[in-house]
Design a protein around this nucleic acid. Structure first.
Lengths: 232, 232
DNA sequence: GCAAAAGTGTTCTCGGTACACCCATGG
DNA sequence: CCATGGGTGTACCGAGAACACTTTTGC
């Protein structure tokens, strides 16, 4: 059974929406291999950890947001023999969704940590030149997963603070799908799905226009029927 | 970087449809741990293999169907610290779909290899008592993946031989979803989806009733709009 | 009052469901 | 001719798309 052993790591595609753009958290590498390039946050799995425990721990360490409650799920594993020049390393990609965090990432243990709009990382051919290892592919897979999960789950609420308006929720869909949605049909769709949104007794104040109802996320996780992206 | 190393294995959820039932390929273990129980086929990743290569190789060795062309995709990774009493083993689950194979599994390298209806493995509490390691969970995840992929892809055709009738295809959906479908609406749905089915110039002969058109699978992989399972 | 944003009502259309009905073969 | 399964036509209904219109605030 012995003979071919692997180091096992966890990599995180941490997504948020800032200024109507889907962004991923990247860390600048200051040691070889790929020194100077950007990479996904991650780390090795410790002897008594399960994969999700490693991912949870690293997410707290990288974002400074210690408390749990963020959406975190496994994405896929990557183990090409030559993906790491130091030796045989298998990495288990994960996807994490966080509400828009405070600008300087407080408490993060890595200095060179920053949010990057994914548009420039996934569309352009610049991705592979900019990112270390196969992180460009992992990132692309994570974005695709997030896009498709918005269709048939209530995952979008994970991008929002505890209380939010329908418009904030719509901005999440628009940023992740990179398209616009009809505000009126969107409103009906999400408010008429049982368990998606629970109204609070407060409304947004201080903005121009009619004040919007504030909602909390409800208990539902699935969306029946799904909200399809369409062909754009 | 060294210090916590893993053995890395691949496990296969090999699915087929036999006698209107979804079945999985299981191997009887004759060595500890879990000697005497059934387990998923699988094996360790060799030094220069990527995960899909290991899975492809093991699928050929277990089913005796050497030629490729079967649907094979990664499912998820499992790495609980105590999942294997021999030490730290991470396994990458895969799902494989094969047409109904000849009854005795010719060329398979394991003698105790047999098809088991998944109904008894997933529904009953017998699953964890019958299966080795965490293979009950991997199997359940694989079945769930297959069920949901029938909704929005043309994966069902992978369960069929190269040429098949609409009824054969419907039997696949009915076996995997464990429900019945209206034959007439199903017919229209699949024949009107561009690229799903390509008619051949032959028809089925020798059966009672009107002879059915034979189809080959077309180039389409996605199903727009999806065919939803409904709530049953 | 006017601009802006929230939220409702209405119409059209498309796809799913249910089911009546016709077609083509074996016995 | 009749049973059996293949395949088409059609009516109904629910949901999405498009958009007119009302509501409620800031300025």
């Amino acid at each position: 059974m012995r003979g071919n052993l692997f180091a096992v790591a966890v990599d995180l595609v941490v997504l948020t929406v800032r200024d109507a753009e889907l962004c991923a958290l990247l860390v600048r590498r200051d040691a070889p291999p790929f020194a100077g390039r950007w990479g996904l946050p991650g780390g090795f799995v410790l002897p008594n950890e399960d994969l999700l425990e490693t991912a949870t721990r690293r997410l707290g360490e990288e974002t400074g947001l210690e408390f749990g409650g963020h959406h975190l799920e496994q994405l896929a594993s990557y183990a090409a023999p030559d993906r790491d020049p130091r030796g045989r390393v298998l990495t288990v990609g994960h996807i994490a969704i966080v509400p828009r965090p405070p600008e300087p990432i407080a408490g993060a243990d890595a200095a060179g940590t920053a949010w990057h709009p994914i548009a420039k990382l996934v569309d352009g051919a610049a991705a592979d030149a900019l990112l270390a290892f196969d992180h460009g592919r992992i990132l692309a897979d994570g974005v695709e997963r997030a896009q498709s999960k918005l269709e048939y789950t209530t995952l979008a609420a994970s991008f929002c603070p505890p209380e939010f308006t329908v418009t904030q929720l719509r901005r999440v869909y628009e940023a992740v799908w990179r398209r616009t949605l009809d505000p009126r049909n969107f409103q009906r769709k999400v408010t008429s799905t049982p368990g998606f949104l629970e109204p609070t007794d407060t409304r947004v104040t201080g903005v121009r226009g009619r004040p919007a109802q504030l909602y909390r996320r409800g208990p539902a996780t699935a969306l029946h029927p799904p909200m399809l992206r369409g062909e754009n």
